[in-house]
Protein backbone atom coordinates (compact mmCIF):
# COMPACT_ATOMS: atom_id res chain seq x y z
CA UNK A 1 0.00 0.00 0.00
CA UNK A 2 3.00 2.22 0.53
CA UNK A 3 3.72 2.20 -3.22
CA UNK A 4 0.10 3.04 -4.06
CA UNK A 5 0.14 5.94 -1.60
CA UNK A 6 3.42 7.33 -2.93
CA UNK A 7 2.16 7.02 -6.51
CA UNK A 8 -1.04 8.87 -5.59
CA UNK A 9 0.98 11.66 -3.95
CA UNK A 10 3.18 11.98 -7.07
CA UNK A 11 0.11 12.14 -9.33
CA UNK A 12 -1.58 14.72 -7.09
CA UNK A 13 1.56 16.90 -7.22
CA UNK A 14 1.71 16.51 -11.03
CA UNK A 15 -1.94 17.57 -11.38
CA UNK A 16 -1.45 20.61 -9.11
CA UNK A 17 1.83 21.80 -10.66
CA UNK A 18 0.75 21.32 -14.29
CA UNK A 19 -2.58 23.07 -13.62
CA UNK A 20 -0.80 25.94 -11.91
CA UNK A 21 1.78 26.45 -14.67
CA UNK A 22 -0.04 25.55 -17.89
CA UNK A 23 -3.27 27.53 -17.76
CA UNK A 24 -3.82 30.48 -20.09
CA UNK A 25 -3.89 33.03 -17.23
CA UNK A 26 -0.40 31.89 -16.19
CA UNK A 27 0.69 32.38 -19.81
CA UNK A 28 -0.67 35.93 -19.74
CA UNK A 29 -3.76 35.21 -21.86
CA UNK A 30 -7.19 36.46 -20.78
CA UNK A 31 -10.55 37.33 -22.28
CA UNK A 32 -11.10 41.00 -23.11
CA UNK A 33 -14.68 42.17 -22.53
CA UNK A 34 -16.44 44.91 -24.50
CA UNK A 35 -16.11 47.31 -21.56
CA UNK A 36 -12.33 46.95 -21.68
CA UNK A 37 -11.88 44.82 -18.58
CA UNK A 38 -10.22 41.39 -18.78
CA UNK A 39 -11.42 38.18 -17.15
CA UNK A 40 -9.62 34.83 -16.87
CA UNK A 41 -10.41 32.13 -19.47
CA UNK A 42 -12.24 29.02 -18.29
CA UNK A 43 -9.08 26.92 -18.20
CA UNK A 44 -7.97 29.12 -15.30
CA UNK A 45 -11.04 28.10 -13.28
CA UNK A 46 -10.43 24.47 -14.24
CA UNK A 47 -6.85 24.81 -13.00
CA UNK A 48 -8.03 26.24 -9.66
CA UNK A 49 -10.56 23.38 -9.28
CA UNK A 50 -7.84 20.83 -10.16
CA UNK A 51 -5.64 22.25 -7.41
CA UNK A 52 -8.58 22.05 -5.01
CA UNK A 53 -8.93 18.34 -5.89
CA UNK A 54 -5.16 17.70 -5.76
CA UNK A 55 -4.87 18.90 -2.14
CA UNK A 56 -7.21 16.27 -0.60
CA UNK A 57 -5.72 13.72 -3.01
CA UNK A 58 -2.31 14.43 -1.45
CA UNK A 59 -3.84 13.70 1.96
CA UNK A 60 -5.45 10.47 0.71
CA UNK A 61 -2.12 9.37 -0.80
CA UNK A 62 -0.25 10.16 2.44
CA UNK A 63 -2.76 8.28 4.60
CA UNK A 64 -2.76 5.33 2.18
CA UNK A 65 1.04 5.12 2.42
CA UNK A 66 0.86 5.01 6.21
CA UNK A 67 -2.35 3.03 6.78
CA UNK A 68 -2.34 -0.57 8.04
CA UNK A 69 -6.02 -1.42 8.44
CA UNK A 70 -7.76 -3.07 5.49
CA UNK A 71 -11.00 -1.17 6.08
CA UNK A 72 -9.14 2.17 6.10
CA UNK A 73 -7.30 1.25 2.92
CA UNK A 74 -10.55 0.40 1.19
CA UNK A 75 -12.15 3.69 2.23
CA UNK A 76 -9.07 5.62 1.07
CA UNK A 77 -9.03 3.76 -2.25
CA UNK A 78 -12.67 4.63 -2.91
CA UNK A 79 -12.06 8.29 -1.95
CA UNK A 80 -8.96 8.38 -4.20
CA UNK A 81 -10.96 6.91 -7.08
CA UNK A 82 -13.69 9.54 -6.71
CA UNK A 83 -11.10 12.34 -6.61
CA UNK A 84 -9.43 10.79 -9.69
CA UNK A 85 -12.76 10.88 -11.51
CA UNK A 86 -13.16 14.57 -10.58
CA UNK A 87 -9.64 15.23 -11.90
CA UNK A 88 -10.87 13.98 -15.27
CA UNK A 89 -14.34 15.54 -15.20
CA UNK A 90 -13.28 19.11 -14.32
CA UNK A 91 -11.44 19.98 -17.57
CA UNK A 92 -13.83 17.97 -19.77
CA UNK A 93 -17.40 18.10 -18.48
CA UNK A 94 -17.70 20.28 -15.38
CA UNK A 95 -15.73 23.40 -16.41
CA UNK A 96 -13.66 22.68 -19.55
CA UNK A 97 -10.64 24.34 -21.16
CA UNK A 98 -10.14 26.79 -24.03
CA UNK A 99 -11.34 25.72 -27.47
CA UNK A 100 -8.08 26.60 -29.21
CA UNK A 101 -6.01 23.42 -29.58
CA UNK A 102 -2.77 25.43 -29.64
CA UNK A 103 -3.20 26.80 -26.10
CA UNK A 104 -1.09 25.15 -23.40
CA UNK A 105 -4.21 24.30 -21.41
CA UNK A 106 -5.19 22.08 -24.35
CA UNK A 107 -1.75 20.78 -25.23
CA UNK A 108 -0.45 20.10 -21.71
CA UNK A 109 -2.91 20.69 -18.85
CA UNK A 110 -5.84 18.69 -20.29
CA UNK A 111 -3.84 15.58 -21.32
CA UNK A 112 -1.85 15.57 -18.07
CA UNK A 113 -4.93 15.75 -15.88
CA UNK A 114 -6.71 13.08 -17.95
CA UNK A 115 -3.67 10.80 -17.81
CA UNK A 116 -3.19 11.41 -14.07
CA UNK A 117 -6.91 10.86 -13.43
CA UNK A 118 -6.81 7.53 -15.31
CA UNK A 119 -3.78 6.41 -13.31
CA UNK A 120 -5.31 7.54 -9.99
CA UNK A 121 -8.44 5.50 -10.72
CA UNK A 122 -6.29 2.51 -11.76
CA UNK A 123 -4.20 2.74 -8.55
CA UNK A 124 -7.39 3.02 -6.47
CA UNK A 125 -8.94 -0.02 -8.14
CA UNK A 126 -5.78 -2.10 -7.68
CA UNK A 127 -5.59 -1.02 -4.01
CA UNK A 128 -9.24 -1.96 -3.54
CA UNK A 129 -8.70 -5.32 -5.25
CA UNK A 130 -5.62 -6.15 -3.17
CA UNK A 131 -7.20 -5.12 0.15
CA UNK A 132 -10.33 -7.17 -0.67
CA UNK A 133 -8.13 -10.18 -1.52
CA UNK A 134 -6.22 -9.89 1.75
CA UNK A 135 -9.40 -9.62 3.76
CA UNK A 136 -10.71 -12.81 2.14
CA UNK A 137 -7.42 -14.65 2.76
CA UNK A 138 -7.35 -13.67 6.42
CA UNK A 139 -11.02 -14.61 6.84
CA UNK A 140 -10.56 -18.04 5.24
Amino acid sequence: MKAAGVLMIALAIAVAVVSLVFNCQAEGRSLALANGTTVPMKCFWSAMAEIAVAVPLLGVGGMLALSQGRETQRTLAVTGGILGAFTMLIPTVLIGVCANPDHDCNRIMLPTTLMAGTLIIAVSLITLFISEGRTEASAA
Partner: peptide, 16 residues
Protein backbone atom coordinates in the same frame (compact mmCIF):
# COMPACT_ATOMS: atom_id res chain seq x y z
CA UNK B 1 -2.47 0.90 -22.77
CA UNK B 2 -0.50 3.65 -21.07
CA UNK B 3 1.49 4.39 -24.20
CA UNK B 4 -1.61 4.55 -26.42
CA UNK B 5 -3.34 6.79 -23.89
CA UNK B 6 -0.31 9.09 -23.57
CA UNK B 7 0.13 9.43 -27.35
CA UNK B 8 -3.60 10.08 -27.78
CA UNK B 9 -3.78 12.68 -25.01
CA UNK B 10 -0.51 14.46 -25.79
CA UNK B 11 -0.84 14.40 -29.60
CA UNK B 12 -1.01 18.21 -29.89
CA UNK B 13 2.08 18.62 -27.74
CA UNK B 14 3.87 15.97 -29.83
CA UNK B 15 3.12 17.82 -33.06
CA UNK B 16 4.34 21.16 -31.75
Amino acid sequence: ALSALAVYLFRNLLVS
